[in-house]
Simulated scan of single mutants.
Amino acid sequence: MPPVDPTAAYARKGRGAASNPEGRFESVRHQAEDDGWQSLLLDEDAPRPRTEVTGERARSVITRNDSPDIAFEQALNPYRGCEHGCIYCYARPSHGYLNLSPGLDFETRLRAKTNLAEVLRAELARPGYRPSPINIGSNTDPYQPVEKRWRLTRAALELLAECRHPCTLVTKNALVERDLDLLAAMAHENLVQVFVSVNSLDNHLAAKLEPRASAPHRRIKAIAALAEAGVPVGVLVAPIIPALNDHDMEAVLEQAHAAGARCAGYTVLRLPYELKTLFREWLALHAPQRAAHVMSLVQQMNGGRDYDSDFRTRMRGQGVFAQLLRRRFEVACRRHGYGRARDLQLDTARFVPPRKSSPQGELF
C-alpha cells in the first residue's frame, strides 16, 4: 500500500482534523509532492491514524488561573491531547509545546499523566495550600475514550473525595456515569458539580464536528443519570458556531432541563493560533456551501478578525449577532427556569489535607 501524506487535507473517518500541520514553534516545514506514481494516497481507503497514548511523569498537576472571564481559580487535566477530536477545540494549539501538531497529532498522539494522583496528593498536602474548587477538564476532556483504560480521572476523584476537596467537571462523554458512586457521595457533601457540553442535537453534524465524543442524545441521558443520582448538573451549549449549530440552542436547553440540568452556560467559537486554518479546512470539506457565511459571522463577532483574544469579548463575542445569541440564551433560560452556575457554592470548609506518601507507610 502506498504511503499516506499526513499533511494533506482530506476527511478522515473518525477524526476531526483534516491535516497535520506543523505547530507554530516548529522551524521546519514539510510538504509532500506526488511523483506521478500514486505515492500519495488521499482517499477514504487510506489507513486510519491510530490513537497512541504515552505515559509521562508530571512535576505538577494543579494549574492556577487568573483570567477574569473564567470562573475557577484552579484546574487539573489528566491528559494532554484529546481523542474526541473536536475540530473547534481551543486547546489544540497547546500540543505545539510538545513539538506535535495541533491537527491529527492532537487527537491521536496523547499524553497521560501516570503519576497524577501521587503529585496531586503532594500538592494538596503542602502547608500553605488554600482549597478552592478544582476544575477537571478545562483543557482536554477528562472522560475521553482513553480514560476507560488509564482511569486517571477516577484516581483524581478518589483522592479529592478522600480529602473532601470540592471540584467541578466538564465533559462531553457519557463515561462520566461510570463514576456516579464517587460523584453521588461527593454531591451529598456539596463537593462536586458536573457540566455536560452539548452544542447540537444533530447526530450527523456531531459525528463530523466532534467525532469520538458521545452522541448528543447520549449526553442528554448522562445529564438525566447524574441528576437522578443527586449530582448537581448543568449544561454548556459550547461552542456556538454561527450558521452551523446556533439554531439548536433553544432545543438543547429545553431537553437538558427536562433531563435535570439546573444551570446553563454558553460560549462562542474561538479560533486561536493554528485553529483558524484547521477550522477553515474542516468547513471546506464538510460545509463548503456555507463556509464563507460561517466565517463572515465569526469575524463579525471578533471585530473583523477570525479571533480576538480580548478577555471582555472572547467567550461571548461582540456585535449584532453576538447580542442576538445572548438575548436568545437569556430568554430560553428564563423560560425553563435555569439558574447560574455560580449560584452553587461548593464547600471548601470540609477539606482535610492528605498525608504525604511515605515509604514507611502508615505507622500511626
Score class of each variant (00 low, 15 high):
residue 200 S to G: 12
residue 231 V to A: 11
residue 223 I to W: 03
residue 191 L to M: 07
residue 220 I to N: 11
residue 273 Y to L: 14
residue 256 A to G: 12
residue 220 I to M: 07
residue 189 E to Y: 02
residue 226 L to I: 12
residue 238 A to S: 13
residue 238 A to F: 03
residue 207 A to F: 11
residue 194 V to T: 12
residue 267 T to L: 08
residue 210 E to N: 11
residue 203 N to W: 01
residue 194 V to E: 04
residue 272 P to Q: 08
residue 252 V to W: 01
residue 233 V to M: 05
residue 209 L to Q: 01
residue 183 L to T: 05
residue 212 R to E: 00
residue 237 V to P: 00
residue 259 A to K: 03
residue 221 K to W: 07
residue 230 G to I: 11
residue 188 H to W: 01
residue 230 G to S: 07
residue 183 L to E: 05
residue 217 H to Y: 10
residue 187 A to F: 11
residue 214 S to D: 09
residue 250 E to W: 04
residue 198 V to L: 03
residue 199 N to S: 15
residue 184 A to V: 10
residue 243 A to I: 01
residue 276 K to A: 14
residue 189 E to H: 13
residue 262 R to G: 11
residue 274 E to W: 01
residue 257 H to F: 09
residue 218 R to D: 14
residue 226 L to Q: 04
residue 229 A to W: 11
residue 264 A to S: 12
residue 212 R to F: 09
residue 200 S to H: 09
residue 272 P to I: 08
residue 193 Q to M: 14
residue 222 A to I: 11
residue 201 L to S: 12
residue 254 E to M: 01
residue 221 K to F: 03
residue 194 V to K: 01
residue 277 T to D: 15
residue 212 R to A: 05
residue 263 C to F: 15
residue 251 A to F: 00
residue 224 A to E: 15
residue 241 I to V: 15
residue 196 V to C: 13
residue 251 A to C: 05
residue 241 I to C: 06
residue 255 Q to A: 03
residue 204 H to D: 15
residue 235 V to L: 05
residue 217 H to T: 05
residue 214 S to M: 10
residue 195 F to T: 11
residue 198 V to C: 05
residue 213 A to K: 04
residue 253 L to Y: 10
residue 196 V to I: 15
residue 261 A to K: 05
residue 277 T to G: 15
residue 261 A to W: 00
residue 201 L to V: 12
residue 212 R to C: 09
residue 195 F to Q: 14
residue 206 A to M: 10
residue 191 L to T: 02
residue 212 R to P: 06
residue 274 E to I: 13
residue 240 I to R: 01
residue 240 I to M: 06
residue 273 Y to H: 13
residue 217 H to E: 08
residue 229 A to S: 12
residue 235 V to F: 00
residue 213 A to T: 08
residue 264 A to I: 02
residue 209 L to N: 00
residue 227 A to Y: 08
residue 267 T to R: 08
residue 201 L to N: 10
residue 258 A to R: 11
residue 259 A to D: 00
residue 192 V to E: 00
residue 242 P to S: 10
residue 225 A to S: 10
residue 233 V to C: 07
residue 201 L to Y: 14
residue 273 Y to T: 13
residue 231 V to P: 14
residue 266 Y to G: 07
residue 231 V to C: 11
residue 205 L to I: 00
residue 210 E to A: 11
residue 190 N to L: 06
residue 216 P to T: 05
residue 247 H to A: 15
residue 230 G to R: 12
residue 200 S to L: 12
residue 234 G to S: 02
residue 220 I to V: 14
residue 192 V to D: 00
residue 212 R to D: 03
residue 195 F to H: 11
residue 267 T to Y: 06
residue 241 I to P: 04
residue 267 T to E: 13
residue 229 A to F: 08
residue 220 I to R: 07
residue 214 S to G: 09
residue 199 N to F: 12
residue 227 A to I: 09
residue 207 A to V: 07
residue 259 A to T: 04
residue 207 A to C: 05
residue 263 C to T: 07
residue 246 D to C: 00
residue 252 V to I: 13
residue 236 L to E: 11
residue 273 Y to A: 15
residue 238 A to R: 02
residue 250 E to A: 13
residue 234 G to N: 02
residue 238 A to N: 01
residue 213 A to F: 05
residue 235 V to C: 01
residue 203 N to R: 14
residue 187 A to Q: 09
residue 270 R to C: 07
residue 232 P to Q: 07
residue 255 Q to S: 01
residue 202 D to A: 13
residue 261 A to I: 04
residue 206 A to P: 00
residue 207 A to I: 04
residue 273 Y to E: 14
residue 203 N to I: 05
residue 273 Y to R: 14
residue 260 G to A: 08
residue 228 E to V: 03
residue 275 L to W: 03
